[in-house]
Amino acid sequence: MSDATPAEAAPGDGDGAGMAAAEEVHGAPVTWSCGQQVLHPTREQYLDVVKALKDEGFNFCVDLTVVDYLAHPARRLPAGVGPERLELVVNLLSFEGRRRTRLRVQVPAGDPVVASLFRLYPGTEAMEREAFDMMGVRFEGHPDLTRILMPEDWEGHPLRKDYSVGRVPVQFKHPPETR
């Protein structure tokens, strides 16, 4: 599984549709978005794929975030990948290969649990806490999964689509005395 190598050069830009999921990297279907390689492992494959990618030279975890697709369920995914409400997005970077790759993992909202990348990339510690705080995805194996940005006693996960923006209506108040 780990001997599979990804396509060396990005194919032509613009095939954002990426429905041609003939390619696979470490068992995960590959699409291309704006010339960027995107892997779609399942939740079960996720940790193994990241491990294989790390062995392959992706030594730097740039970013980890979650997208809530509640209001936009019909997004483009390769054949065989069933859309779920939440999607974990991990951006990896290889210093040697000077290239990036991105993983998109489908996470059902009913059971939002994913393996933590902490043992592979300790730098994901804060990012996973942020994802938990903002989106309510739990990371198994994370050493300290607590709220990071919101107060500890906050209710709800603000970046979810069903969480209101929390607008406060603008009140017009007359000045205390007229001038």
Binding site: G16, S33, C34, Q36, V38, D63, R75, R76, N91
Partner: peptide
């Protein structure tokens, strides 16, 4: 903006 996702740095 057309549907899609992108990461820039």
């Amino acid at each position: 903006v057309p549907e899609g996702e992108v990461y820039t740095a």
